[in-house]
């Protein structure tokens, strides 16, 4: 809509390469089809019609880590599952992002015991933590929007541009 008016009849938009790359990365970020516990139900809920994650270009869950850009760790990670999570993360191709969804994935939640990893950040690096037990779909979508904002700040070498504080 606005693009044609801005570009006029030229059919050309000038921008930086960084912006285009980040724009394409953030608008087709495919999550890995991967749920560990009850948070996965809310994740499915946020992808279904009422909340409709496809507004953000994320409607398609990839069952193969090779095709996924984003891992949503939805649920508690047991010590026996931790090597599997790490392996799936290693199999994802760069660039890749991780959302720790829910209290259990973020810090162990109520499961402060021998069997559960106390925060999935002990196993894989996490970009966004979403609080809640489980988080409502709105909270997950907010986390995803935060992640998109982070992607928009990425430089081409992979480092993150710090926001200018006035």
């Amino acid at each position: 809509m606005g693009l044609e008016q801005k570009a006029g009849d030229l059919g050309i938009v000038t921008t930086s390469l960084e912006t285009v790359v980040n724009w394409s990365r953030s608008n087709a970020m495919w999550p890995l089809l991967f749920g560990l516990a009850c948070c996965a139900i809310e994740m499915m809920g946020s992808q279904s019609a009422n909340y409709d994650l496809s507004r953000f270009g994320m409607e398609i869950n990839r069952a193969s880590p090779r095709q996924a850009d984003l891992m949503i760790v939805a649920g508690r990670v047991s010590r026996k599952m931790a090597p599997v999570v790490r392996r799936l993360y290693d199999q994802m191709s760069d660039p890749k992002w991780v959302i720790a969804m829910g209290d259990c994935a973020a810090c162990g939640g109520v499961f402060n015991n021998y069997a559960i990893v106390q925060g999935v950040d002990e196993v894989i690096p996490v970009d966004v933590y979403v609080a809640g037990c489980p988080p409502r779909p709105e909270a997950l979508i907010d986390g995803i929007v935060q992640l998109h904002a982070k992607v928009h700040r990425m430089k081409l070498d992979g480092s993150i541009r710090q926001p200018v504080r006035v």
Binding site: G108, F111, N112, N113, Y114, A115, I116, Q118
Partner: peptide, 13 residues
């Protein structure tokens, strides 16, 4: 881990 002399918590709160 289910022996009673095993510490209960995984990590300090």
């Amino acid at each position: 881990p289910l022996r009673k002399d095993v510490p209960l918590g995984g990590e300090e709160v």
